[in-house]
């Protein structure tokens, strides 16, 4: 069974760069995609799936596995690339994103994609499911952890805070949640649409142990994750400061990266050119 792999900065850097290229290509073939929020969570996903989570792609439903819920389900393509390269399904399937009859829909669907632990897309709902999974782990006295990523825009949803209250009340120290705090939602900066700050204080006041990290730094994510897992008697929130569209020269830190249109082959090629990875064999 595979568990934690050794951390090699060069390998991880290259993996993140390759994933950005592959995800952009998936969206290029689809003609559109939620690029901004997929690029902002890649370092977190890679850390979870290659360094942290107790999982086995060959035995993907094993009861003792760690669970992961991508509550901001529109970042599905980032998770699909992660799962495919981690061995859950053929990487060739990645180019079927959003195609008729695909197993890789724009938003996560646990009935379609091997390795997805929870369907998500209607915002606010995934965190409740993660809380349910964590409660089940406590009842069954299993030592798996539940990880989740929620969006900053998603945190406007009341259900996030319903789940937050219950998780603290049930003392779910087997639950670690990241907020992908890229500071943008569809209609503009999060501070202008419906301000989240002081976000750390909000989570603290809900009874969570709260950490902040640089969501694109391997070291910062890893060290914070270890601290979060060590918390006893409380769920842990990691507010990951991220950059929407991180790593794409055209879209980085741009609100409009939320859902980009790639109308033709020329736009597709331009999108990819900006992400060139030397020696990448893809597809």
């Amino acid at each position: 069974m595979e568990h934690v792999s050794a951390f090699d900065r060069t390998v991880f850097d290259r993996r993140a760069a390759e994933f950005r290229y592959v995800i952009a290509d998936m969206m290029g073939h689809a003609g559109s995609g939620h690029l901004g929020g997929a690029f902002s969570i890649l370092e977190i996903l890679i850390t979870l799936y290659w360094r942290e989570m107790h999982i086995d792609p060959k035995n993907r439903l094993m009861p003792t596995r760690d669970r992961f819920v991508l509550s901001k389900g529109h970042a599905g393509p980032a998770l699909y690339a992660t799962l495919a390269f981690r061995g859950y399904f053929d990487t060739k399937d990645l180019l079927t994103l959003n195609k008729n009859g695909t197993n890789l829909p724009s938003h996560c669907d646990m009935l379609k994609t091997p390795g997805i632990d929870m369907t998500a897309g209607s915002l606010g709902q995934g965190l409740s499911a993660a809380v349910g999974m964590a409660i089940a782990g406590k009842i069954d006295k299993k030592d798996y952890n539940v990880f989740a990523i929620i969006g900053d825009g998603e945190s406007n949803e009341g259900q996030i805070w319903e789940a937050a209250m219950l998780a603290a009340h049930k003392k779910l120290d087997n639950l670690v949640v990241f907020t992908d705090y890229n500071k943008f939602q569809i209609d503009g900066p999060t501070q202008e649409i419906c301000a989240l700050d002081p976000l750390t204080d909000k989570w603290k006041s809900f009874g969570w142990e709260v950490f902040e990290c640089d969501g694109h730094s391997w070291d910062s994510i890893w060290e914070t994750l270890q601290k979060a897992k060590a918390v006893q008697g409380k769920p842990a929130m990691i507010i990951a400061h991220t950059i929407k569209g991180k790593g794409h020269p055209i879209y980085e830190n741009k609100c409009e990266s939320h859902n980009i249109r790639i109308p033709d082959a020329k736009a597709h090629q331009e999108l990819l050119n900006a992400l060139h990875v030397e020696g990448l064999q893809w597809p």
């Binding site: 606010g124 409740s128 499911a129 809380v131 349910g132 999974m133 089940a136 789940a163």
Partner: peptide
């Protein structure tokens, strides 16, 4: 918190 109850139920069901 009915919305949360339904989501939590779905998560519990995912764990058997």
């Amino acid at each position: 918190a009915e919305a949360n109850m339904m989501g939590v139920a779905a998560g519990l069901a995912s764990c058997g």
